[in-house]
Design a protein around this nucleic acid. Sequence first.
DNA 1: CGATTGGTTGACTCCAGTCAAGTGCGGTGG
DNA 2: CCACCGCACTTGACTGGAGTCAACCAATCG
Lengths: 220, 220
Amino acid sequence: MEIMFPGLDADAHRRIAAVIRYPIQVDPGEHLVRSGDRFHDLYSVHDGVFKAYVDDANGREHVWGFNVQGELMGLHAITTGHYQANFVALEPSRVAAIPYSQLFTLFDQIPPLFDFLMRAASGRLGILERLSGDHAAQVRMAAFLVSLPRRFQPLAHAPDTFRLPMSRRDVANYLRLVPETVSRMFSRFVRDGLIRVDGQDVTLLKLARLEEIGKPLGEL
Amino acid sequence: MEIMFPGLDADAHRRIAAVIRYPIQVDPGEHLVRSGDRFHDLYSVHDGVFKAYVDDANGREHVWGFNVQGELMGLHAITTGHYQANFVALEPSRVAAIPYSQLFTLFDQIPPLFDFLMRAASGRLGILERLSGDHAAQVRMAAFLVSLPRRFQPLAHAPDTFRLPMSRRDVANYLRLVPETVSRMFSRFVRDGLIRVDGQDVTLLKLARLEEIGKPLGEL
DNA sequence: CGATTGGTTGACTCCAGTCAAGTGCGGTGG
DNA sequence: CCACCGCACTTGACTGGAGTCAACCAATCG
């Protein structure tokens, strides 16, 4: 459980446990939330992977992000009262549902909780401000790849080797590219000896060089 | 004062007034915050206009946003402890500095304050998720223009006529375009009878049509 | 007045998108 | 066991929309 709210101690986790619903199991391909659903809960991912996405007018999918262990989903829905995106599991996953209206009652008992929530929102803001800039395809790809070691630890089966839990199409829709371009970037990075690719498995061979390329975008 | 924290009542404003520093006057062209400065305060704009921007590696400016009356600045800095952007005034402006560390102490006295802050962060998240999508130049321009009536009310000198407080270059850097493209879009919209332009003054002639064009992006 | 600055317009380029064909892997069933 | 199918991915040829470069214009300011 500790791992669900990084930075909060065991006592805080115990107190939070009293108000959340956990575990909620979600199978791959199953939706936790549909766009337009009424907002009641924030969700914290315990394990597995989720994809947040919207379908735009011309039928294309905009992937808002991927969420793994310890990350919060649903912050964007507070203002409007409705989720604006779909959350679908890409792996067998477990989440905790945190009733937003009950968070207030915990502030007295858990002083760092407010800061935890603001940090979660704040961190995402920083990422989005940068991701919304215009960056070359290879910059986007490189920044995405270097973010994997930090976030997708549970999917690593060797240092710097990860199984991508999402399709090329999902990656493309997250980075605002088309699958063909993602494919070309993979090919280019392989040709240049920066990565090794074997189906869903990706190995980062020259992390420093990738960081260099992805620098304009920073951490995703 | 009420107008600084939209949604909070007079009593809440009085209590907040006890912890904030106000007014802080900022002249046009003067910086309130520099990128890298240590984060202590959130800023609420009382009047005037601010531009938040960063300079990227190749010397180009990324405008993160424009902030007017009642809007909060600095939320992105909570996680890192440092502001990641510069805040510069475009008009004679006044802001309030809100010490982040003291906000906690107000939650008991002002129950809706937490929700107010989360909504501010949440609303911005929604905008950014959408703005980070890939949209045609004319979609970006149209969405930007239709957002003016709602946000830049104080700069209107007739219904649907506004003085843009920022340069074409600033608009371009906000919408991830180049000034030439912004110029071309203005020209096209004028040719199509959607807007009238006179220097910094813009009149929206066919709001419905502009909303239609900007729909994929939604509200900015 | 000239010099500077912000904005507009036109000609050209280039990167990523589009369209289409080809490849390879996993699953199914004969 | 293998032939077939479907789907995800890859690769190549072409296109188009926004960026680049450059010239021009208008307003402002010494």
